[in-house]
Each structure stands twice: as structure tokens, then as C-alpha cells.
Computed example of a mutant assay.
Amino acid sequence: MGSRVTIKDVAKAADVSIKTVSNVINNTGRMRPDTRQRVEGAMRQLGYTVNLSARSIRSGGTRLIGLNIFDFSQPFAPYLADKVIDFAKERQYGVIINTYGSDGTGLADGIEETYRLGADGWIFFTERALVDDGAALEQPYPVVMAGDYLSYGKSDLVTMPNVSAVQQTVGRLLDTGVRAIALLGAPPGITDWDSLKSQKEGTQELRTQGYVRAFKERGLDVDWRYVIPVHGWNQHGGVQSTAAMLDSLPCPEAVVCLNDAMALGAVHELQRRGLRVPQDVQLIGFDNVPEAEYSVPALTTIDPHIDDYAKHAVDMLIDRIEGYSGPARTYTTDFTLVERASTRLAH
């Protein structure tokens, strides 16, 4: 039995946009009669039947929003999902969660499913750069993008203060006299400032920029041996990268991990080798996921205000669903360094 024909298949066969197919299905918008006939012919030829999303749009909406996000292999994804659900409930909307794997093409892997699911609009969380100038954001339903990548002005965007958050945090360490600071989670292939400073998007790239800028604003040199890429931003990646670092380099005075999942793995490996945190090595994460407070020792981490992040994503999306048609907006959260037992910054 073949797979179900989708609105995307019809658009490709008729050589039109997905939005045009949606307008034909819902009898909305303006188009040339021959365009409508071509779309209707493609629908008949392919055997397309109207899906739940199309029916719900036509009947006035479902009061459901969708969150398309990477799988729950690290704690940030379910943490953000919980916050989105909370704020959607406040607006009397339900939430559909659709996940995509980190080993595929990213966000694009999950978009096909959104056509089958009955949501009035979607929050797209992307963990990699969009291709084709953000073509994935051009959908027949309202979209808000969340993440640290360019949206090309094609949707509202909610993002984090990645550069300034890491810059100020590493600066705090440097100002206490710490010099050997490892960074876990850097983009692969970055070995100098020239290859990094021109980057305009990307969680790894922007947070690594912040790390380097903290050194540069104090006239200090970066030891690029300690700028360490990590395969897999999860606990396992944190364990592996920490082990490889300790096997090949002198133990640093501090380790800054570009998310909490890696930091939780790093603290495990440091302690397994008999190193004390924070007496021998200070450790800092990024995200302030709930697990950070209950690690041993409790993890110092950068809190990018996920409540605010989720609230703005939900509010922006519902604005669009309920009729707002203004230009694309961008919202950047603030941050707080939450100091816990894995550092000695307060002393």
C-alpha cells in the first residue's frame, strides 16, 4: 500500500506553491482560473483527499497549535515543550508535539507530518541552518520559528542572547583569575577567530563567539586546544568530549558547556576520574533545565529565560492565527547566570 498523497505532492505536480494548493482546497485567495484547474487536476490524478488540517482550517480552526522540535534525547526539548503547553493553556489552546531526529535533515523531516495533524499553526524549533533561504517556513498555516538561525524575514523568530550570555559568563571566570577555560560544544573546524567572527547564525557559532570575545576584550589569547567540538549535544557527548580532553590536555581550571546536557555528562566524567567540582574544576552549563538544580553538585548554568522564550513564541503564533498580518518580528530573550555549587564565582 502506497503512502498517503500530501499537499506537498500536489504542489509539486501542479508546479505551484503549497499556499496555492491550500487556497484551492479552502476556496480562498485569488488565482488565475487555469492555475486552479491545474491544481484540481493534480489532486484528481494523484488521488489526494482533504486532510484533517485542511478541514479544520475551513471550519474555523481547532484551537490547537503545534510544536515541531528535535527528539527528546536531551532535556532541553521536553523542558521547552512543557513551557509551550503551559502558555498555550493560558490562551485556551492545546498543543500537538511532533519530533524529528537529529540524525536526519533536521526540521524538514518533521514538516511532512504537520500536514496530517490538526493544528492551526506551528512553532518550528530548528537546530540547524535552513536551506533555500528558509523555504521551510513558507507553509499554508501560520509559523513562528524558534532557534538561533536566520529566518530570512519569512516568519516571526524567537531567539536567545547567545553571544552576550557566554561572553559575560566567561568574563566572570576570567575576572576571578581563571585562565585555562575549556569550551565544550564548539562547531567543528574552528581553530581561529577569523573563521568564526563572520558567522551570523548557529547556536554553536554564536556561543563560541561569546567565549572568544570575553578573552579578546581583556587582551587575552585563546588557547584553541580547549575550544572543543562535541559530537552529540547530550550527556554521552559530554562524557566523551571530557574524557578526550583529559586524555590529551592538562586539566583546565574551568569548563563551560554550551548546553546543560553536555555539562551533566562532563561532571560525571570529571568525578569518575577523581576530580572535584568545583575545587579542582569549575563547571558551567547553558539552559537551566530542571535537572541542573539536582545534579551533584548542583550545576551553575546560564538561564536564557525559557519562560519568556516560550511565551513569546506562543503569543506570536496565536497572533498570526487570530489574524495579525504585520511584518515578521524577532524577539530575543534576556539571560541570568544562576550560580550554584559547581562554581566558586561568588567567593
Rank of each mutant, 00 (worst) to 15 (best):
S17Q: 06
S17N: 08
I18D: 08
K19A: 11
K19Y: 07
T20A: 12
V21H: 04
V21D: 00
N23E: 00
N23Q: 05
V24A: 06
V24L: 02
I25E: 00
N26Y: 01
N27Q: 09
N27M: 03
N27W: 01
T28H: 12
T28W: 03
G29F: 04
G29S: 07
R30H: 11
R30M: 07
R30T: 15
R30A: 11
R30Y: 10
M31T: 04
R32I: 15
R32P: 15
P33T: 08
P33E: 00
P33Y: 00
P33C: 00
P33I: 08
D34P: 15
D34Q: 14
D34C: 12
T35F: 03
T35K: 03
R36I: 06
R36G: 12
R36L: 07
R36M: 07
R36Y: 02
Q37I: 11
Q37C: 13
R38C: 09
R38S: 09
R38I: 03
R38K: 10
R38Y: 05
V39W: 02
V39L: 02
E40K: 13
E40M: 09
E40Y: 06
E40L: 08
G41M: 06
A42I: 01
A42R: 09
A42T: 05
A42G: 12
M43S: 06
M43P: 15
M43C: 08
M43D: 03
M43Q: 04
R44Q: 11
R44S: 09
R44C: 05
Q45K: 13
Q45E: 07
L46H: 08
L46M: 07
G47A: 02
G47V: 06
G47K: 02
G47M: 02
G47R: 04
Y48D: 00
Y48F: 08
Y48A: 03
Y48N: 02
T49E: 05
T49I: 07
T49S: 10
V50T: 13
V50M: 11
V50F: 05
N51Q: 12
N51Y: 12
N51M: 09
L52C: 13
S53V: 14
S53Q: 11
S53M: 11
S53T: 15
A54R: 14
A54Q: 10
R55Y: 04
S56G: 08
I57K: 10
R58M: 03
R58V: 02
S59H: 13
S59Q: 12
G60L: 00
G60D: 00
G60S: 02
T62Q: 00
T62V: 01
R63T: 02
R63M: 14
L64P: 11
L64V: 13
I65E: 03
I65H: 02
G66C: 05
G66L: 02
